[in-house]
Nucleic acid binder design. Structure first.
Lengths: 357, 357
DNA sequence: GTCTCGACCCTAATCCTTTAGGTCGTTCGG
DNA sequence: CCGAACGACCTAAAGGATTAGGGTCGAGAC
């Protein structure tokens, strides 16, 4: 309110100390609402802080306390709308705690490279992030690195590597969901499927493909797998050239591996005036806000990203709290992973019109 | 590579110093690739750092150097896809510099409140963010606060308040774009418009409304303005109850103020089986990836968010660099705003089918 | 009257880096 | 041979906070 014009320099604890004649100890305690301070002194300090426009320097606080307040969400290509819901869940869970989430986009420039992954992890350690939620499978080396620094990691969507046997995760049962999807396509009588997929570095891709293969075998369908980089342009290009190469015919059903993949697929089909679902049926992974409003409304496999975000954030929060406790008791703050931190949630098909229903 | 198993504690500069027998000064200089270090020592230090798995503590660095590396992008309701493109532009510009962008969502929980705005700004100052790019008009008080801390701010999309006369911005000429939109609707012969708008706290809302009013007057159309909170649910609810209240008839054209507004609008129309554009024409502000694939393809006002992000980031970068220079020369690091930092870019209508074309 | 205890406050160390200001040899021009 | 200049280091302070370890003082217990 009174925001008097501030002195030249940014006020620090010492300034309040001088203004009030109290020691920095007392000022600190007063500001952090601790004990050992009389009501009168506290009042005095608070008033001075307000008048000087004091705002604590978090870097200094965290350096001294050896605490950190922000967790990092590692994503690749945020243009995948899926992340919006995930973040919403995470944010919601964190709100009220004194932690906050920042996102580190590993493939901001479009393409993923190992170098960028390494640099990102290095950066996280430099900034001493409290914990990590990652949507992609980090290299074993990077996981080791984070572990060395006692930074807990929880995987969402993508599975941790084999040898990270205790690291928590929240996955959807993509295998079963893919089986179901295949069954649905088979029920329509389609026997000729094309799976437009992003790279296998996302473990979901592998599970989804595995489920589809199993379903194809079970229902006597033919499954073609087409791989693209994980963005709209690549998907568009990949499918286009596929359809243009002699010997390839339009499949009866296309399963788009994720959001950028459907986006590419539908665009290609629209450009070529191929009708959905009459000429080709389309189903896609990952529900998103606009799916019901597309032409035709899109049949999708729905994984509840927001709920996943909530679970992941809760798990991470618990681990971080335990670390704080451990540290207070003078123990090593190694992340305490529990078996039940490895969770799998199920996904189901939302049937709309693009599959032919 | 050799990632030997790390010692119990996290290695610091001092550890390297002890391991090499060199002083912390020399180690620091060696690591930061500075002068005053012999090639042999540098080699020694680098080797030790690698073996110990040393990673500098950024909090300590920034505290000492009095620098900060991250800028903050303030958004409200990230579910507005518009932000994705904006961020893309910002990230692209920042890549390669040693700065990075983090987003602070002011209305994560859906609703915007002044309290949250204040808390967010407070938080930014605590973490001593280097600079701010904000998509909404902050309160005069908060702008003053950031100014007091020499934190430069650039507004994108939303205009700064009147009295912040020198603060940079990158706006789109929403007034002209709205005029054009109105003209297009008039050309279709529609004389009965409904503008579904988000709150006026975003200055774009005001400009858009002003343009539409002017257009309506010019072309003899009737304009109704309907206000909703800035999210899908509110938009949906607001339009539904509007249509349900006796005396209100379906307008001939709906202009949706932004992404959440179209989302709500189209959903309502779909639920009621109102045909677009036969029964009602729809145009919307802000192009987004799915617009061409909707049913029918959506006519939108396109503002190039990515380009705006680039401009904003470049402006902010320049100001921050100048601050660094000033500080090096012992001057006060007050942000140096220039008149040409206040930019307006134009937007144009992308005509698709939802308007009746 | 002495002892104890709690409330309140202080000094100084500490967190991890960076850097101003010196030191100590060498080398080199004159 | 002298002084200056330079390279390679070092010591110690600083940056803004927290906190261990002590003090002081007055009130209550005995």
């Amino acid at each position: 309110m009174k925001a008097e014009s501030m002195p030249k320099k940014k006020p620090t604890l010492r300034d309040i100390s001088q203004a009030t004649g109290l020691s920095s100890y007392t000022v600190s305690r007063a500001l952090s609402n601790g004990s050992d301070v009389s009501a009168a002194s506290r009042e005095l300090v608070l008033k001075a802080a307000r008048e000087l426009g004091y705002v604590p320097n978090r870097a200094a606080q965290e350096l001294r306390r050896n605490t950190r307040s922000s967790i990092t969400v590692i994503t690749a290509s945020t243009s995948n709308y899926y992340y919006l819901d995930l973040m919403k869940g995470i944010q919601r869970t964190l709100r009220g705690s004194n932690r906050n989430a920042v996102v580190a986009d590993i493939a901001a420039e479009g393409v993923y490279t190992e170098a960028v992954e390494d640099a990102t992890v290095q950066d996280l350690i430099q900034s001493r992030t409290a914990g990590v939620i990652t949507t992609l499978t980090l290299s074993a080396q990077n996981i080791k690195l984070l572990e060395d620094w006692d930074i807990p990691v929880v995987f969402v969507d993508s599975a941790p590597p084999e040898d990270a046997a205790r690291v928590p995760f929240v996955l959807t049962d993509n295998f079963t969901a893919s089986m179901d999807t295949g069954a649905h396509l088979a029920a329509h009588g389609y026997t000729d499927w094309l799976f437009l997929a992003y790279p296998g570095r996302w473990s979901t891709r592998r599970e989804r493909e595995r489920g589809l293969r199993e379903a194809a075998a079970k229902h006597g369908a033919a499954l073609e797998v087409l791989e693209s980089e994980n963005d709209f342009d690549s998907a568009h290009r990949t499918l286009s050239t596929y359809l243009d190469t002699p010997g390839h015919v339009l499949p009866r059903a296309i399963i788009a591996g994720n959001n950028p993949m459907v986006h590419g697929t539908l665009t290609v089909l629209q450009e070529r005036r191929i009708r959905v679902p009459e000429d080709v049926a389309v189903v896609a992974f990952d529900e998103f806000a606009w799916a019901p409003l597309l032409n035709p409304p899109l049949t999708v496999v729905n994984e509840d990203s927001e709920a996943i975000g909530v679970i992941a954030a809760k798990t991470l929060t618990r681990i971080l709290d335990e670390q704080l406790d451990a540290e207070r008791n003078g123990q090593q703050p190694v992340p305490n992973y529990r078996p039940e931190d490895r969770r799998e949630v199920s996904a189901h098909l939302i049937v709309r019109r693009s599959c032919g229903c």
